[in-house]
């Protein structure tokens, strides 16, 4: 059953992504990107990563969509038709994709408990974190305690990005002000 849901959700995601590439109306694209995020959140639930699904549903489907809509309100709603040939891009993408798919052939299969990723630090987190750190949610204990440095770094990145946006957008809009002054003059 899980396998069926997995296949169907992933197929939906591919369809949504292709529709996003082909559409030129940017509002429709942004709406589809919200759907895309919601589908990936559902996918994360199927893959048992509930914390990630929660975040993706709140951030990807909520805040990202609203931010893109406000950007479109400040810029344009339509994308111009392409002026250059897109076959070089298609060629690059196809070759890269084929190489990557060839690379996956050696990978451990989906859900394999003996995969290398489950051998190294994960057993330590799963076995020891309940009595070493305490919280029943292992994701929280790894996030805040074992990998505290990581999270401190990530928080700093968010802080820096926020400051960057404020610096970029808080200044006076010179062009519009100039336009307005010109317009006021008889």
């Amino acid at each position: 059953m899980e396998q069926v849901i997995d296949i169907v959700l992933l197929a939906f995601m591919v369809v949504t992504a292709i529709a996003m590439i082909r559409l030129r109306n940017l509002f429709a694209v942004v709406m589809l990107s919200g759907i895309f995020s919601l589908l990936s959140a559902a996918m994360f639930v199927v893959l048992d990563a509930v914390d990630v699904a929660f975040t993706e549903a709140a951030v990807g489907a909520g805040i990202s969509t609203v931010l893109m809509l406000s950007t479109l309100a400040l810029t344009f709603r339509e994308e111009r038709p392409a002026t250059r040939a897109d076959w070089p891009a298609l060629l690059v993408v196809t070759v890269t994709g084929a190489a990557l798919i060839y690379g996956t052939l050696d990978m451990p299969h989906f859900g394999d408990p003996d995969a290398p990723i489950h051998q190294h630090v994960a057993p330590r987190y799963i076995v020891d974190s309940p009595h070493e750190v305490g919280p029943p949610n292992m994701v929280t204990s790894v996030l805040a305690s074992y990998r505290g440095y990581d999270t401190l770094g990530e928080t700093t990145v968010i802080f820096t990005a926020g400051i960057g946006v404020m610096v970029l957008l808080a200044g006076v809009n010179r062009r519009r002000r100039a336009d307005r002054e010109r317009g006021n003059r008889p």
């Binding site: 994960a122 987190y125 994701v139 790894v142």
Partner: peptide
């Protein structure tokens, strides 16, 4: 839990 932690922060 490790990929969850990495991706959780990466999303935000």
């Amino acid at each position: 839990p490790l990929p969850s932690v990495l991706i959780l922060t990466a999303i935000v």
